[in-house]
């Protein structure tokens, strides 16, 4: 399973590096959304700083949908999905590999978004470990849940519009918990931010396990 996961993650990331879809489409959309939020909220620094964690994670959330759609678009090419199924590769490995590739893209995206947010909103992290742990757990949750629902909608003709409809409500707890945890990391109190990790951790763990178990049957039926 882990060998297959590495293989699939390497393949997906290599394809992304070559096609640069994430670089030229997902990343600019995320940064642009932050800029537009800043315009919408006005120039008041305190308003921007208060809203920054929520806006950051909202941008990450929408980027997750785009990255997941892209991840499955790779497999919707001529015959590639059949090729993957006939290859004998472990479906759990495919799930982990695709989720890992999406997570890697989201991690890079968050670094860029963080830099953009610092410039635009003038906010700074006071408790780095809390922000990093929250990001780590939220990224795993977003990538695993996104990949699971991506597989669910992959075989459908309306997948582009159906995926956001399916996945955005499911990811709402991550948006809420990651925003609150980051709020604690930016402005404190740390203890209130810490408590939200108790939602992010189990969410990530549940979707990781559910994905490993259900991805094979989903591939069969999707």
């Amino acid at each position: 399973m882990w060998r297959d996961a590495l293989l699939v993650a390497g393949k997906d990331l290599r394809i992304e590096l070559r096609s640069r879809v994430a670089l030229w489409q997902v990343l600019p959309v995320a940064v642009l959304s932050l800029v537009l939020y800043a315009f919408a909220l006005g120039p008041a620094r305190h308003t921007l700083a208060a809203a920054a964690p929520g806006l950051f994670w909202l941008a990450v959330l929408f980027s997750t949908v785009l990255a997941t759609q892209r991840s499955f678009a790779i497999e919707s090419g001529e015959g590639t999905r059949d090729g993957l199924r006939v290859s004998g590769i472990d479906p759990a490995g495919v799930f982990l590999g695709k989720a890992a590739a999406v997570a890697a893209e989201l991690a890079v995206l968050q670094v860029v978004l963080w830099a953009a947010m610092t410039l635009l909103f003038g906010v700074h992290v006071h408790t780095a470990w809390l922000a990093i742990v929250a990001s780590f757990l939220a990224t795993i949750g977003l990538a695993t849940a996104g990949t699971l629902y991506g597989a669910l909608s992959a075989g459908l003709r309306v997948r582009e519009t159906l995926l956001p409809l399916l996945v955005l409500p499911v990811l709402a707890p991550v948006l809420l918990a990651a925003s609150r945890a980051w709020s604690g990391a930016l402005t404190g109190p740390v203890s209130s931010g810490e408590s939200w990790l108790r939602i992010l951790g189990p969410f990530a763990a549940v979707y990781l396990v559910v994905g490993i178990v259900l991805y094979g049957p989903l591939l069969e039926t999707a």
Partner: peptide, 14 residues
């Protein structure tokens, strides 16, 4: 089994 489908199972970017 080995399957050669209508469309070859290849990734365009690889």
């Amino acid at each position: 089994v080995g399957l050669l489908g209508h469309a070859p199972s290849l990734y365009d970017e690889l």
